[in-house]
């Protein structure tokens, strides 16, 4: 018995030390962001500010445009989440609960899109958006990424488990098809909505390449693009760059912490789908 507890303590410590090593970059990022300019230029490196200061954050939000970039990121991620949940759940519902002629063909064509990497169509999508005057707009960033075969598949799987009896009885009560979707399926698919909503929000917030291409006016930058550009101008200002990184990554990490159960369950469900 005793031997077992010693072993347990040893193993737990090993893993705990590994976790701490993995988290050091975050720790260092946060503490350095509260240092005075130039304070991190020291050897050995400092892990704690001499005196905490929000100077770097003031520069970001008052002199630079991180508030605007933050709002852009927030708007894009929110709009993307709402529109993609709506459109993909609607399609998922159709595939889960209707028998129709083109069903097989349409479902396969959605799945095929999962095999082709997004970069392939990127150049023409850029030209299409340009023709439509949608470069440097929120919707130009959102519309090309709204449909997700993964989401449609996920919704289909989830909604298949909802009893069809519910739909039949609603129909007898005179419920239209859209009303069945809106009043019955969506509320019952809440867990799927939360999981996919979280995936979409985080994915959109963290995305870099597509906003880099679509948003070339600095008033439309999202946080990752703004941070990448800040790097070009302020590379020597370590403390400022760390504050910028905190502003960029902390919101989504907090959101994840709050909803981690749905996130992890969705991750696992996605991997076991075969």
């Amino acid at each position: 018995m005793k031997k077992r507890s010693v072993k347990s303590l040893a193993l737990t410590s090993v893993v705990a030390v590994a976790v701490m090593l993995v988290l050091i970059p975050f720790f260092w990022m946060i503490t350095t962001s509260f240092m005075k300019s130039g304070e991190s230029f020291s050897y050995p490196p400092r892990f704690w500010p001499k005196a905490f200061t929000i100077q770097q954050y003031q520069i970001l939000f008052q002199r630079l445009h991180f508030l605007r970039d933050f709002l852009n990121s927030f708007a894009v991620a929110s709009l993307m989440t709402v529109s993609s949940l709506f459109i993909n759940s609607l399609a998922g519902f159709a595939f889960a609960k209707y028998n129709f002629k083109a069903r097989r063909f349409m479902f396969t064509s959605f799945l095929v899109t999962m095999v082709i990497p997004g970069q392939v169509g990127m150049l023409p999508v850029f030209l299409i958006l340009r023709q439509m005057g949608m470069l440097n707009t929120y919707w130009g960033l959102i519309l090309p990424g709204t449909v997700s075969a993964f989401s449609i598949f996920f919704f289909r799987q989830y909604m298949s488990t909802i009893p069809t009896d519910l739909i039949d009885s609603a129909r007898i009560d005179g419920c239209g098809d859209f009303k069945i979707y809106w009043r019955i399926m969506l509320p019952l698919a809440r867990p799927a909505l939360v999981t996919l909503g979280l995936f979409t929000f985080l994915g959109t917030w963290n995305d870099f390449m597509w906003p880099l291409i679509v948003m070339n006016k600095d008033s439309m930058y999202t946080l990752p693009v703004a941070l990448a550009n800040l790097m070009g101008e302020h590379a020597p200002d370590t403390e400022l760059m760390m504050a910028g990184s905190v502003v960029t990554t902390l919101p989504v990490m907090i959101l994840f912490l709050a909803l981690q159960k749905s996130y992890v369950s969705g991750l696992v469900a996605g991997s076991l789908k075969e």
Partner: peptide, 21 residues
Amino acid sequence: LGFFAPVVATLVAVSVVWKYI
């Protein structure tokens, strides 16, 4: 959760941090 934290972090932000590391 500790091991998973880097996965949800914004790629650009942590790339910047590692550049300084």
